[in-house]
Amino acid sequence: MTTPALFGLVLAGGASTRMRTDKALLDYHGQPQVRWAFELAAKFCAATFVSVRPDQREDSSRAGLPQIVDRQPGIGPIAGISAALQEHPKAAWLVLACDLPFLTEGTLQHLIAHRDPHKVATAYRSAHDGLPEPLCAIWEPSAREGVLAYVAGGKRCPRTFLINSDATLLDLPERAALDNVNTREEFESAIAALGPLPNPPAQRGGGSKTVRVQYYAILREQAGRNDETLDTSAATPAELYAELRKRHPFQLAPEQLKVALNSEFGDWQTPLKHGDTVVFIPPVAGG
């Protein structure tokens, strides 16, 4: 079996009822979110489309992008997935919701690297409830028949579809990457958490950058949290740990720790980049 080509589908047909404004047009990263998600998907996909309802075709933020129009509007995101699977039946689809402002290239890379084309889909487990996340997932052509039957049977929930399908489920390399934004309050806190992320550090001067730190085991307990996002002028993980020791009662010395950058072992002197995820690894004790 040859692996089906991967196409991208950005879901931008939602009604955004709880936000009371079009979620696709929210600006987290210096451009409408639908365009940001489209460009992110396009980095990995042979072709990328925006999923729209028929009445959104001429909408200014969507009109300039290749579209796939819902065939059964009003039934939610499964309409977009179903339309895409029918429009290009030989393609696999990297389906992305456009209310995922924390999504990163690394998270998509990890998904694609662990894709199993023999399964109906490859998806992440939610960091919150462990159930599949259908809207940052790869849907294979083999999902088409099942999705059509599911919709024909009056069902709409893509998550329930994946729960009952033979899908590969992965753990998120970055826990918060799929935290979605449905309300004004969540939007405001997302903006605050993302802070200056859209600007590359080179343009910002002073070496200031935003990094996310995840804590495990004794460091998690001593920090009193699982993770935090912070602005820092620390140039290296060594400087960052020294800075964090002023804020948290960390007793482990750097010599007792290892460091991971973006879910891979790193070096204490590697220059930190804007947007990095950093983990300080206490002495391990498996087995």
């Binding site: 495990y216 690894i281 004790a285 498996g286 087995g287």
Partner: peptide, 14 residues
């Protein structure tokens, strides 16, 4: 495998 897992894999035991 068990020796390397104990030393290299980020797993913690409380």
């Amino acid at each position: 495998i068990i020796d390397e897992v104990k030393h290299r894999v980020p797993i913690w035991k409380k």
